[in-house]
Simulated assay, not measured.
Amino acid sequence: MKDFFYAIQDLFVNVLFAPLDALSELELENWFAASAISWIFVIICSAAFVYWMLQLKKFNDNDEENKSITAHDYL
């Protein structure tokens, strides 16, 4: 049973968190490169959020949803 938990530890420490270790090493060598990678992720998430909000607005403006009180069972 102990080997099972050591396998989980090995999976997380050596495999799944390897990109984060590489990013922390990159930060020590070149701070601007590490920050650029972070900003790229921020831009991607912001673009996805804006796209999601525009899609929600498009479906809301279509006005096909039944918004009456009895539209849902839990109301």
Rank of each mutant, 00 (worst) to 15 (best):
Y6K: 10
L75W: 07
E65N: 09
N60A: 14
N60F: 13
N30C: 02
N66Y: 11
D61I: 02
W31F: 08
S38C: 12
A36N: 07
E27N: 02
Q55R: 10
A47I: 13
Q9P: 01
E64P: 06
A48L: 12
F4R: 07
K2S: 12
N14M: 07
I37H: 09
Q9G: 02
H72N: 14
D73R: 15
S38P: 04
E29I: 00
A18P: 05
K57W: 15
W39Y: 09
F12L: 01
Q55D: 05
L56R: 15
L75R: 06
V50H: 15
S38R: 14
A36V: 02
S24A: 05
D10L: 07
T70N: 14
A48Q: 10
L11A: 07
A47H: 09
S35F: 13
F5T: 04
A71D: 03
K2N: 14
A47S: 09
A48K: 14
V42D: 01
N60V: 08
D3W: 06
D21T: 06
A48P: 10
A18S: 04
I69G: 07
F59I: 08
W31H: 13
N60K: 13
F5K: 09
I37T: 07
Y51H: 13
C45T: 07
F5D: 00
F32E: 00
H72C: 10
D21F: 09
A71E: 02
F59D: 04
S24P: 04
E25N: 04
D3C: 06
I44N: 03
E64M: 06
S46H: 10
F49N: 04
L20T: 06
M1A: 04
L20W: 09
K67V: 09
L28W: 03
I40H: 13
F59T: 08
L54N: 11
W39S: 02
I8G: 00
N62D: 06
E25A: 02
V50P: 11
K67T: 12
D63R: 12
F49R: 11
A34E: 02
I37Q: 02
F4T: 02
A47F: 14
N66I: 03
E27I: 02
Y74G: 03
P19T: 06
M53N: 15
S68Y: 14
A7H: 04
L75G: 06
I8W: 06
N60S: 12
A7R: 11
D63F: 13
E27R: 14
V13C: 06
Y51E: 05
L54Q: 10
E27A: 03
A34F: 15
